[in-house]
Every structure is written in C-alpha cells, then in structure tokens.
C-alpha cells in the first residue's frame, strides 16, 4: 500500500485462553491503508487474536507491531498515546448504557482534547451524520436496534480520527441490507480517511465486499495469509469447503432420531389444543 496509514505486523504470535494455546506462531503483515479481514469459523480464535493485538488479553508469545511500535514492550504512557490513535468497534457496539448517543460519542473528545463544548458538539454531529444517526443524539443504547448500536459504536470509534480501526464481527446479527450498508460505510471510511482497517468476521459476503487482504485462521493455525484474489483462487480442500460453504458430513446425520412420546409430557397439550393439523 502507498498510504501513510501504519501496517500491523504480527510475528510468531501465540494466543490462548487460561494458559492453553489456541493458535500458535501467527505471522502476518496487515497492510496500512487497506482493509484486512481476519476470517475463520466460530470459536477458532479470531476475537481472541483481536484482543491480543489490542492488549486486552495477554499473548502467550511473539510480538505485534502497530507501525514501528511493538505494543507488548511499549511503555504505559506511549501505549496510552497509541490507544488514542486506534478506534475499536466491538461486537455489540459496547456503548455505555448510562449515556445517550451524543455523550457516548463525545466521551473520548471530553477526556482527551481541549475542545470547547460547542466544538465537541460539531464533531459529534458530523460523526453521527457519517453513520446516519444524527437524528438519534438523545437516544440511549437500549432504545436502538442492533444495527444502529453498531453504527453508533463506529461513530464513537471514529471520533478521534484514528489511524487504525478494528472491527469485531461488524455484520454479525444484521440483516443482509444492514450488513451491506455497514460494508459500504467501512469502504467509504477507508477511502475518505485513508486508515488501516482490520475486520474480524466469519461473513464471507462481507469479506468479498471489503477485503484487500485476508488472514484465515482455523484448526489451531494460520490457514491462509494473502490477498483476497489469491484466497478465492485457492485449491486447499478446507479453504474451498469454507469458501463454498460446504459442511463436513457427520456420522450424526445417519443416526435415527427417536420421537418424543406425547404420553411423557407433563401437560396434555393434545387434549387442550387438539391436533394442530385439524381446523
């Protein structure tokens, strides 16, 4: 990439939970100014990798460089400054429930800048209109739909004009229209703000729409690491299965399922409702 946005370099990273490694020796360079998608099946360690990159969970080994800074050896104050240049969109938005939308988005500005209230209001309104929520400033997170919460989370992640944006499953739980809108929004952000975007996802359609670079995790290792085009052309059996959305045939499909005998039910629903087939 020819952008000034920083690369993210992952070197020999081992991630795990409770002392047990999940994925060992991850090596990848997520290019600056592009959209990198960390792809993999449910429970393969994508979100754990993101939490390790963001230092929310301690890594079991290796290093992560944001630009030229190794985040694991960075001093506390320097890491604080680095955090102010990072935006994170959590799975459910992670908006503070006690604050309305305006205050949620304004929070980082109030804490880290010397801007006056009127200037803060201007920035917040601009960011909320970027995600199409300018009419919902007084709403509290529990009054918004899942998609709106994600867009509000995105506005908050964008409010400090970060160099790197991390998104954890941005399209999960959204309908196809909302998913497509969020993908378009991410592409627009990349184009307008020239930032590095890292998206953790298992949504293939979303990956195909936004990715420049893909890192595929699964079976406790890195399965693929390269451009979207080379991933789509891969011959690897497991990756093909994943990309073509084909499940493995399981033994369980041949097991005959016993039917539940109505006589074991505590309530005689047949007597109360009659047969549902009869009018």
């Amino acid at each position: 990439m020819t952008s000034s946005a920083p690369d993210i370099r992952i070197e020999n990273l081992t991630i795990g939970y409770g002392g047990k490694p999940i994925i060992e020796d991850i090596n990848a360079t997520l290019p600056g100014g592009g959209v990198s998608v960390i792809l993999g099946g449910s429970g393969c360690g994508k979100s754990t990798l993101l939490k390790n990159i963001l230092k929310l969970n301690p890594a079991m080994g290796g290093s992560v460089y944001l630009g030229k800074h190794n985040i694991f050896t960075l001093k506390k104050k320097a890491f604080s400054c680095l955090k102010q240049r990072i935006g994170v969109l959590f799975q459910d938005g992670a908006l503070l429930g006690a604050l309305n939308l305006f205050d949620n988005v304004a929070l980082p500005l109030r804490e880290h800048t010397k801007l006056k209230p009127a200037e803060i209001a201007e920035v917040v309104k601009a960011k909320l209109s970027l995600v199409g929520l300018e009419k919902f400033v007084d709403y509290f997170p529990n009054e918004l739909s899942g998609g709106m919460r994600k867009r509000a989370g995105l506005a908050r992640a964008m409010v400090m004009d970060p160099d790197i944006l991390f998104c954890d499953e941005p399209t999960s739980g959204l309908d196809p229209i909302n998913s497509a809108e969020l993908d378009e929004l991410l592409l627009e952000l990349k184009k307008r703000f020239e930032m590095t975007i890292v998206v953790v996802s298992h949504d293939l359609a979303s990956m195909q729409a936004i990715a420049d670079y893909v890192l595929v995790l699964g079976k406790g290792k890195t399965l693929f690491n390269g451009s979207k085009e080379s991933l789509m052309a891969t011959d690897d059996v497991y990756l093909r299965q994943f990309l073509d959305r084909k499940g493995e045939k399981r033994e369980s499909s041949r097991i005959t399922m016993p039917h539940l005998d109505p006589s074991v039910m505590r309530m005689d629903c047949n007597k109360l409702l009659g047969d549902l087939d009869n009018n």
Partner: peptide
Amino acid sequence: ISEQIDALELMDI
C-alpha cells in the same frame, strides 16, 4: 460482561 469496560480501556479512559 458487555465489554463496556474494555471499550473504556481502549478509549484510553
């Protein structure tokens, strides 16, 4: 449990 504290940490608050 709803990641709000993680969000605060990552906003450097």
